Amino acid sequence: MNIEEAKSKLYSLNNEPKHEKMLGAAAIITKLLEKENIRPIVVGGLSVEIYTQQEYATRDIDFVSDGYDIIQELGFSKKGRIFYHDAIEIAVEIPDNYLAGSMDRLVRYV
């Protein structure tokens, strides 16, 4: 997937429910970053939302990752620590590029 295909896929998420839209956006960003040998890790609220099967709701996607430039290439604008995509109303925050916890506890969500 290239940037243009990814942008198109992001826009196609616009009418999806919030949870599905965030999962889709996280998947698209992950696929693009993996091409650069960057493996982003979803942390924070979205990881809790996934774990609790939507019993908890969040308003943004938190990644531990490098690769900020790809997020901006997808049409997200940076506002402080947050990247926001106006058209699909998704916010992404990258609080760190290093996971403080154990890598052995990661679960791959497919």
Rank of each mutant, 00 (worst) to 15 (best):
M1Y: 02
I3M: 06
E5T: 13
S8H: 07
Y11L: 15
L13D: 10
L13H: 06
N14T: 10
E16V: 01
P17K: 14
K18F: 02
K18D: 15
H19T: 05
E20I: 12
M22F: 13
M22D: 07
M22R: 15
A25R: 03
A26H: 06
A27Q: 14
I28E: 12
T30D: 14
L32P: 01
L32Y: 01
E34P: 00
E34W: 00
E36H: 10
N37I: 01
N37P: 00
N37M: 05
R39V: 10
R39Q: 13
P40E: 05
I41N: 13
V43Q: 06
G44I: 12
G44K: 10
G44H: 11
G45M: 03
L46Y: 12
S47I: 02
V48H: 02
Y51T: 11
Y51M: 12
Q53Y: 10
Q54P: 02
Y56G: 03
T58N: 06
T58V: 05
R59N: 11
D60R: 05
D60Q: 11
I61Y: 08
D62R: 02
D62P: 08
V64P: 02
S65W: 02
D66F: 10
G67C: 03
I71W: 08
L74I: 06
G75N: 06
F76Q: 03
S77V: 02
S77C: 00
I82M: 15
Y84V: 11
Y84T: 05
H85W: 09
D86S: 15
D86H: 12
I90S: 05
I90V: 15
I90Q: 09
V92C: 06
D96K: 11
N97I: 04
M103R: 11
D104G: 08
R105G: 01
L106Y: 05
V107K: 11
V107W: 00
V107P: 00
Y109T: 11
V110W: 05
V110H: 08
